[in-house]
């Protein structure tokens, strides 16, 4: 994966989790103004959705890679 692809929208699951952890920490701090807390909450919820979307829940078959780069279905 090239570095350019990692724009704001396309963060890895782990990066998203890190951000979520930080947001949670901020949210758990009582001194945070309510409006900011709401904004943080909303953006965190969006991140959570991204995390869920990132798990592409389609069962995959094992593929066989050939030397020319083509793939075949692998039968065990």
């Amino acid at each position: 994966m090239s570095e350019e692809k990692k724009t704001e929208e396309k963060r890895s699951l782990e990066e998203n989790f890190d951000i979520l952890e930080k947001n949670l920490k901020d949210l758990e701090d009582d001194s945070l103004p309510l409006e900011e807390a709401f904004a943080l909450y909303e953006s965190s919820m969006k991140l959570l959705k991204d995390c869920n979307d990132e798990i592409d829940r389609v069962e995959k078959k094992v593929l066989l890679l050939k030397d020319n780069g083509e793939t075949d279905e692998f039968s065990e």
Partner: peptide, 22 residues
Amino acid sequence: ITGHIADCKNRLDQSIKSRLTH
């Protein structure tokens, strides 16, 4: 992973809820 996501959501909800209640 799904557990972690669910956990994050719970904590988010909880924290904003408790903030509001407070």
